[in-house]
Amino acid sequence: MPRLHRILFLTLLAAIGPVSHAHAQDHSGNYPPIAIENGALLYGANCAQCHGIGGDTVPGVALKTGTFKRAPTDQDLARLLTTGIPGTAMPATRLSPGEADSLVAYLRTMRDFNSPAVMAGNSTRGRGLFEGKGTCTTCHRVNASGSHVAPDLSDVGANRGADFLWRKIQDPSATMIPLNRPVHIVLKSGRAIDGRRLNEDTYSIQLIDNQERLISVMKSDVKEFSILKTSPMPSFKDRLAGQELADLVSFLVSLKGEN
C-alpha cells in the first residue's frame, strides 16, 4: 500500500500549488479546494488504475480536457460516475453525494495540475514518527492505541485532504475546525473542566476531559463557558524536518478507518 499513497501524495502536492494561485481562476476557482483535494484522493483510489494518474491511459478518453460528451453538467457527471457506462469497462462506483461532488470537482479541474515531483512521503516512516519522535500518540489515538484527549485519527485520511493535514501539523490553530475547538468550563461549584466537546444542546454538554474522562455538564451548573480558538496541539513546523512532515502526512492520508 505505501506505494499507492506515495503516488497519491505526490500528485496531491503537485496539485495544491496551482489550485489556489496562478491559472486557477477559470477552472479551479469554481470548486472549493477541499473538494478538489478529496476528489484527487478518490481518483487515486478508484480511477487511476484504469485512467492513469494523468487521466490519459484509456484510449479515446482524455479526462484532463474536463469536458465530456456524455456529461455536459456537473450533475450528469456525478451520475455517470455512480452509474458507470453500461456496456463498457467503465464501472459503477459507490459514492456518497459528497464524494461524487468531490470527484467532479477534481475531474473538472485536473487540467490545472501539472505533475512535477514535489516531495514523496513514505507512510511507513510516517507511522514511526507518529508514534515516536512526533509524540502524536500522547494526545491522539489511531486504531485503538494512543490517548483519547485529542480527536481519534483512525479515519482522518478519509475525511481530510493532504493539503489540510500538511497545514494542520504546521499551524494547528489556524486550521482548527470549529467542531474541534477545546472548551474551558468553570462550574458554579468552582470546579474547572478542560476538554473536548463530544456533543452539546441547549441544556447540556457532553465532553471528554484532559484526564480522558467522559463528563456530563448541565449548563445550569455552569458559571463560565469558553470555546477556545487556540489549539492545544503544538506546531511541528520547526520540530520536524520537511521530509519528516511529508512522511507524516503520507501516513495520515493512509488512515481510512479500520473497515
Binding site: I34, R160, F164, I177, P178, L179, N199, E200, I227
Partner: peptide, 23 residues
C-alpha cells in the same frame, strides 16, 4: 463557509450535534 461542517442542513442529522454554533 465553515470548513468540514455539514453543508445542506438535512433534517435527518444524527444524534450528535455536528452543526456547531459557528454555523
Amino acid at each position: 463557509p465553515i470548513p468540514t461542517a455539514p453543508n445542506i442542513p438535512t433534517l435527518r442529522r444524527g444524534p450528535i450535534n455536528t452543526w456547531t454554533e459557528a454555523q
